[in-house]
Design a protein around this nucleic acid. Structure first.
Lengths: 201, 201
DNA sequence: CTGTTCTTTCAGTTTTTTCTGAAATAACTG
DNA sequence: CAGTTATTTCAGAAAAAACTGAAAGAACAG
């Protein structure tokens, strides 16, 4: 491997974790190596450092590129392609979220919607559809939140995260000042039957 | 399969998605079936409906139980064990988050911490440690946020999610009204002692 | 206790995924 | 252009993961 023990430990752990998240170990290790490396690396060097075949690295990089998680660049005086990760780790998080959404969440929402508009063939299908509706609404809520939040500047995002649940006190504040929130006075209403996800605020 | 087309479509999609998230297809399908079913199901019925061997189902259920994602119960007049998912979908989300954290996030933080306290063997190790520090801090921030937020009542949580990025305007509002006082209305249980993530608002 | 029903375990098989080397392709150099 | 270097593709090998049936183990009923 000829990696420093520090790098090796990180790379191995990351590969292991990757495989628990549906990313193959090789790809995880390549990513970890690029992340921790000072400079962009050419494919043959990655192969040599990690002990993979050149072709395996080629496929791994292709995969990472399809996720937009690595960037390709050319260094002067070297014909090889060099790969690197973005310098800003928040950009990495955003990309990951965006891609996961595009590849897994959106197709799932689409399937759920199809099943929800289908004519139920039985009583038990109707009950099933209710469950699917709950799941659909939950995912949509989370996705909507993620969309909103991903628009924030990193600084604002960090501020928000640091605030944690204390943000709720702000909500209470808002609710105590009805002039600020359009639905401030609707809280006491009972939820409509068959829809227990709708918060009235 | 003898499942309604609706159930079958859901189960198949869920199995597919599971396998992209590091959960094997069988386990994903079992979970989907339990989720969508009206009543708790015994293992042999799951096996029959999904066309898996009884032993495969047994292993899948064991896996799901280790994740605390399914519950076992006995129905009167039936010696078999019946399995079900929680009725409240938010509980499912919480469990999933909690378990992922315990199994993947915490070990990763632990590895990162170990590598951060290790003596760097070179200049390039020092740079690497800087990258690891960034990753560590980011994960810790996210985990801290998740901890805080998971303490909220579901209603509050939904309210927060619906608010999305508009919460930032509340933050600004608050900053413009210093009369309300620092940490006004702060909830005692959400402020762990020794918390180093204190927001300056 | 004996027989019955339900559940788990696990060695071996099947299936799927990952990985490689060889060959093809592409990109450049002089 | 011919030669060289870099990259990708892909059929088959290797490895890993999933799955099964048979057998053992547990929990009960009578």
């Amino acid at each position: 491997m000829e990696l420093s023990p520090l790098t090796e430990a990180f790379v191995l752990h990351f590969g292991e974790m990757g495989s628990r998240w549906g990313i193959n170990r090789t790809v995880g290790q390549i990513y970890a190596l690029l992340y921790i490396s000072e400079h962009p690396l050419p494919a043959d060097e990655i192969a040599q450092k990690l002990g993979f075949s050149r072709s395996n690295v080629s496929m791994g990089l292709k995969e990472l590129q399809s996720w937009r998680l690595v960037r390709l660049q050319h260094l002067p005086g070297d014909r090889r392609e060099h790969f690197s990760t973005p310098d800003d780790i928040w950009e990495i998080v955003r990309t990951l979220a965006e891609q996961r959404r595009r590849r897994e969440v959106d197709p799932t929402l689409s399937v759920l919607r199809d099943l929800l508009v289908a004519q139920p063939a039985s009583e038990s299908d109707k009950l099933a559809q209710h469950k699917l509706q709950e799941m659909h609404d939950l995912i949509e809520l989370l996705v909507g939140w993620a969309d909103e939040v991903s628009k924030l500047e990193t600084k604002e995002l960090i501020q928000l995260l640091k605030l944690g649940s204390r943000v709720v006190s702000l909500l209470e504040l808002k609710n105590r000042l009805p002039i600020l929130g359009r639905n401030a006075r609707r809280r006491a209403e009972t939820a409509p039957p068959g829809d227990d996800m709708e918060p009235e605020f």
